[in-house]
Design a protein around this nucleic acid. Structure first.
Lengths: 235, 235
DNA sequence: ACTCCAAAGCTGTAATACAGGTTGGCATTC
DNA sequence: GAATGCCAACCTGTATTACAGCTTTGGAGT
């Protein structure tokens, strides 16, 4: 499928393909070092300029990591690039916030089912702690938001499927930009309390290993969140 | 020289940030043209080299499109970059094929529900046609696979939520690499027939606007597919 | 108005230069 | 022999110049 991408006709595109192939053929794992720019330029018969631009492309997708003076290394999977792609889609009106929430609901409903069944004791504690930290930071929205995001990432991790983490992470960029809107629309103490309670309920269900209750609590959470966003006049 | 709080200290990273900000602030939409490399280099006080590498980064994520002689343009959302990210995760053993299928099942189960409710007549016809095309190409695996992939993309489109299309598309790169394995493991006529029938059942349920039957058919489809991959010895 | 073409503008690639960070090995010391 | 400190080689980040080839633009001619 990267054949299509590297067919662009440019030297850079085909160099990206060559480097990708090199990673696969040599079975390089995250952390392994790639050849230097000069070496690749010589081996592939292109200028260092071309190799550098190819490296930048791969680094943008977090397939490799670059840092000054050091060789490029193969990167661990990371949702940073996906996050930017989603943000771009939203900012150019190709994706709405509601559509993001529809997908999140689908994904996270499945996540809590798996998390309830597979979470370790440690993970259950982390999830519970994040919910508690949310309650403790009711007066500091930025801190509260950070714990909210961390809560959902912890759930994804407990599902034991890294792809869920990737997708949840991909939405965090845009979510962190819209979260304050939802928060400000919760004007009453009750509304804010309800949001916290939903998270605590989810955490409790995960801790008890009860998938049905976890799903039900997550559904309530999304109902409440979407209601908050709509009442703020979002799409 | 602006030191954006964005990424690591590099000039390229902050230039990427500056260009992204420019797209947002000027509210550029897909197809709109960006300033030339030389203009940006002058405005941002960096060399053309830096601007080019920033452009490459954004192009890798399909946030902008580059082509010779022409100005860079803002790009429509596209799953190409995500596809490469997923492939990288699988090739470096950070993601397993089974995990991909778990996520696909979750996503596509939701997709068929929405598709059954929201599909237009045209979309219903396209979906049915792709299923028919699959049956018609039983002896040509490459063609059959193409229609299989197109079938699932058509379902995603009918869900009327572009994010589902993005995710399904993100999996197509790696799917097209593993599909032949599953196909070869279906050695009997019955097994191959069963696979086609599952697709036809899904198409029929969508055409009739019956979400429950569509979900049930999709579940059968995934049960059968995963069984085929496991019998082929895949993780 | 319309067509066609040449000039101007733009991107793709190469080559060179140098500053500053990193690495590995060597010498020194304990 | 092990730990430490230091230096030279290597590597990446950025700037600059040059030129080929493609695209767009604006004007000349009809």
């Amino acid at each position: 499928m990267e054949q299509a991408a590297e067919q662009g006709g440019g030297l850079v595109s085909s160099t990206v393909g060559a480097i990708t192939r090199l990673i696969r053929e040599q079975d390089l794992m995250p952390g392994d070092r790639l050849p230097s720019e000069a070496t690749l330029a010589r081996d592939l018969q292109v200028s260092r300029t071309v190799v550098r631009e190819a490296f930048r492309s791969l680094a943008a997708m977090r397939i490799i990591e670059l840092s000054t003076g050091r060789r490029a290394t193969v990167a661990p999977i990371d949702h940073g690039a996906m996050s930017l792609i989603i943000e771009h889609g939203v900012h150019t009106d190709q994706i709405s916030i509601q559509q993001i929430y529809d997908v999140r609901r689908t994904i996270e409903t499945r996540i809590v089912t798996l998390a309830a069944l597979r979470r370790t004791e440690d993970e259950a504690r982390i999830i519970t702690d994040e919910a508690a930290a949310m309650r403790a930071s009711l007066t500091r929205p930025e801190v509260l938001m950070r714990h909210d995001l961390a809560f959902h990432m912890a759930l994804a991790r407990a599902s034991k499927n890294p792809v869920f983490g990737l997708i949840v992470g991909a939405f965090q960029g845009i979510t962190s930009q819209t979260w304050p809107i939802g928060w400000r629309s919760r004007t009453t103490t009750e509304a804010r309390e309800a949001m916290i309670v939903n998270h605590e309920r989810i955490a409790a269900a995960i801790a008890e290993g009860d998938p049905e209750r976890a799903v039900a609590a997550m559904a309530l959470h999304f109902d409440e969140s979407v209601r908050a966003l709509i009442s703020a006049g979002l799409t």
